[in-house]
Computed example of a mutant assay.
Amino acid sequence: MAQEIIMKRNRLLYFFIIIALICTGLAARKWQIYLPDMINVYLGDAIWAAMIYFGIAFIFNRRSMSFIAMLSLTFCYCIEVSQFYHAPWIDAIRHTRIGALILGFAFLWSDILAYTLGISISFLGEYFFFKGNRKEVNVVA
């Protein structure tokens, strides 16, 4: 029998975490000249992935942490793989500010790494900072 960690999440708190991550991500892009290049390569994408993690946790507020992490990784990876597809209509969306922030332009392995780091850090943050909101249940596999 496997154990799964189920969370009872406060949607209002998660909403504010999402807003804070959006603001942090936009600030990181604006002030990237002040950060080392090694950090700039990963920071924006890691923050974006963290925002996706908490957004999915907001929507599925009573699902397990592993479900949230896997769905978040799948979503981020699908967005990255979609960057191989170039048609006039989707490239027109990508050339808008919001389209560029959400869809990106070109596939990069470094983005996959950044998404994995951002979601892993979010998972660990949720695990350690919200201990009182979780319970472990036995799952028959």
Results as ranks from 00 to 15, higher is better:
residue 1 M to T: 13
residue 6 I to K: 10
residue 7 M to L: 12
residue 8 K to P: 05
residue 9 R to E: 04
residue 10 N to Y: 03
residue 11 R to W: 07
residue 13 L to N: 12
residue 15 F to I: 05
residue 17 I to Y: 07
residue 17 I to T: 11
residue 17 I to L: 09
residue 17 I to Q: 06
residue 19 I to Y: 08
residue 19 I to L: 14
residue 19 I to Q: 05
residue 24 T to Q: 05
residue 24 T to W: 01
residue 26 L to H: 08
residue 27 A to D: 02
residue 28 A to L: 06
residue 29 R to Y: 12
residue 30 K to V: 07
residue 31 W to P: 07
residue 32 Q to S: 13
residue 34 Y to A: 06
residue 34 Y to D: 09
residue 35 L to P: 11
residue 35 L to R: 08
residue 36 P to S: 09
residue 36 P to N: 07
residue 42 Y to L: 07
residue 43 L to Y: 07
residue 43 L to N: 09
residue 44 G to Q: 04
residue 46 A to D: 07
residue 47 I to V: 13
residue 49 A to M: 05
residue 50 A to S: 15
residue 50 A to M: 14
residue 52 I to Q: 01
residue 52 I to R: 00
residue 53 Y to R: 01
residue 53 Y to H: 07
residue 56 I to E: 03
residue 56 I to N: 07
residue 57 A to V: 04
residue 60 F to G: 03
residue 60 F to P: 11
residue 61 N to L: 00
residue 64 S to W: 03
residue 64 S to P: 07
residue 65 M to D: 13
residue 65 M to L: 15
residue 67 F to T: 10
residue 68 I to G: 03
residue 69 A to F: 14
residue 69 A to Y: 14
residue 70 M to N: 12
residue 72 S to I: 08
residue 73 L to R: 02
residue 74 T to W: 04
residue 74 T to P: 06
residue 78 C to Y: 10
residue 78 C to F: 14
residue 78 C to L: 15
residue 79 I to M: 06
residue 80 E to M: 05
residue 80 E to V: 09
residue 81 V to K: 04
residue 82 S to E: 10
residue 83 Q to D: 00
residue 86 H to P: 10
residue 86 H to I: 10
residue 87 A to E: 12
residue 87 A to L: 09
residue 88 P to H: 01
residue 89 W to I: 12
residue 90 I to E: 06
residue 91 D to Y: 01
residue 91 D to G: 01
residue 94 R to P: 15
residue 94 R to G: 08
residue 95 H to N: 15
residue 97 R to S: 13
residue 98 I to F: 07
residue 98 I to C: 02
residue 101 L to C: 05
residue 101 L to R: 06
residue 102 I to D: 00
residue 102 I to F: 01
residue 105 F to V: 11
residue 106 A to Y: 13
residue 111 D to I: 04
residue 111 D to F: 02
residue 112 I to Y: 00
residue 112 I to V: 13
residue 112 I to A: 09
residue 121 I to M: 11
residue 122 S to A: 12
residue 122 S to D: 08
residue 123 F to P: 08
residue 124 L to E: 03
residue 126 E to W: 08
residue 126 E to M: 14
residue 127 Y to R: 10
residue 127 Y to M: 06
residue 128 F to Y: 15
residue 131 K to I: 14
residue 131 K to A: 11
residue 132 G to H: 13
residue 132 G to Q: 14
residue 134 R to L: 00
residue 138 N to M: 08
residue 139 V to C: 02
residue 140 V to N: 13
